[in-house]
């Protein structure tokens, strides 16, 4: 039977699932909006995945993204990796010569510097979401443009409009101001794309050498306006990989595959059937010491399957043992 590897990327806005074969070729890729319920999305997505790949053995499961711990516990993952490593692994797999990765997702953006196929430097946005997908989403909604058409529309702009891009609050009031001066929607959106790119390059990519080839991935890479703005700023062409929207999941699957090749260990994957049983997350404050940690616990049929948040290891160690 064919040996397959599953990668799951639970991000802030979307949950992505990918299946790759033993050679690392993606067989199926799914992109779901979380709508605040990643646990449910994981369960439903895995059910769809199970349908599409029958019959095969799952030889490894990798999870990544901000929800990687939860996904890892729920699925019984073999590998739980941070998204920077996962994104880099996927980009290097499809474009071995890549030297720079621009990644813009729902709530965070990263720049990853690669030399000789290895991560040498990276940066990630901190508190502000000014340069990310959620902000574009919000503005698209406000202007009543479907997010899928957002980028196309930006390309039709005739005149340049400068929008303040430092902060979403200022950007929005600036957009309204420009709108009252009579600029078209297309021009305002194009201005917004340029502001986002300017903000990204000035803050995140500051002090970084952005050498070609440059790969642009993450959900926002679908936006043609942003891509065009990047190409104008960097004066070069930018590669958008085929699986740009699920690269994190591809990376997690590739890393799980790499680990399997190295160790040859059987997967700890819980199995598709077991995923339908309800998972119940609970949270409480531990009063054992002055730390007062907020403990998060996931249960399945009264059995605790994962615990996070305890600084001393009181709860989490009893699980691993």
């Amino acid at each position: 039977m064919a040996k397959l590897f599953v990668g799951v990327d639970v991000g802030s806005v979307s949950t992505n699932m990918v299946v790759i074969d033993e050679e690392g070729n993606p067989l199926a890729a799914h992109y779901y909006r979380n709508d605040g319920q990643p646990l449910q999305v994981i369960q439903e997505g895995m059910a769809v995945l199970a349908e599409s790949i029958k019959p095969a053995t799952i030889a490894g499961v990798g999870t990544t993204g901000s929800g990687r711990l939860l996904a890892g516990a729920v699925l019984g993952a073999d590998l739980v990796k941070n998204e920077i490593t996962a994104h880099a692994a996927a980009a290097v797999h499809f474009h071995p010569a890549v030297q720079t990765i621009l990644e813009i997702g729902g709530q965070d953006s990263k720049v990853i510097v690669i030399r000789n196929g290895v991560v040498t430097d990276f940066a990630m946005n901190t508190v502000c979401a000014a340069g990310t997908g959620s902000f574009l989403d919000h503005q698209a909604e406000r202007l009543k443009i479907p997010i899928e058409e957002f980028g196309e529309l930006a390309l039709t702009a005739e005149n340049k409009v400068r929008i303040a891009g430092r902060c979403t609050v200022f950007a929005e009031s600036d957009m309204i101001a420009k709108q009252q001066f009579g600029f078209s929607k297309a021009e305002i959106i194009n201005g917004l794309c340029e502001a986002l790119v300017r903000n990204y390059l000035n803050n995140l990519a500051r002090d970084k050498q952005l050498l070609e080839p440059i790969v642009f991935q993450g959900g926002v890479a679908a936006n043609k306006g942003i891509r065009a703005a990047f190409e104008r700023e960097l004066k070069t062409t930018i590669i958008i990989p085929q699986y740009y929207h699920v690269m994190g999941a591809v990376g997690a699957a590739l890393l799980a595959r790499k680990q399997w090749i190295r160790t040859g260990k059987d997967s700890q994957f819980r199995g598709f059937a077991d995923l339908n049983i309800k998972f119940i997350p609970k949270t409480f404050e531990c009063n054992f010491c002055s730390n007062r940690c907020e403990i998060i616990r996931v249960e399945q049929e009264q059995k605790v399957i994962a615990v996070w948040g305890d600084k001393c290891g009181r709860y989490s160690e009893s699980i691993s043992a």
Binding site: S66, K81, E83, I84, F122
Partner: peptide
Amino acid sequence: NHMIRLEAFVEL
């Protein structure tokens, strides 16, 4: 948020 950076840094 810091864990992502720490993990990626250690990986590097």
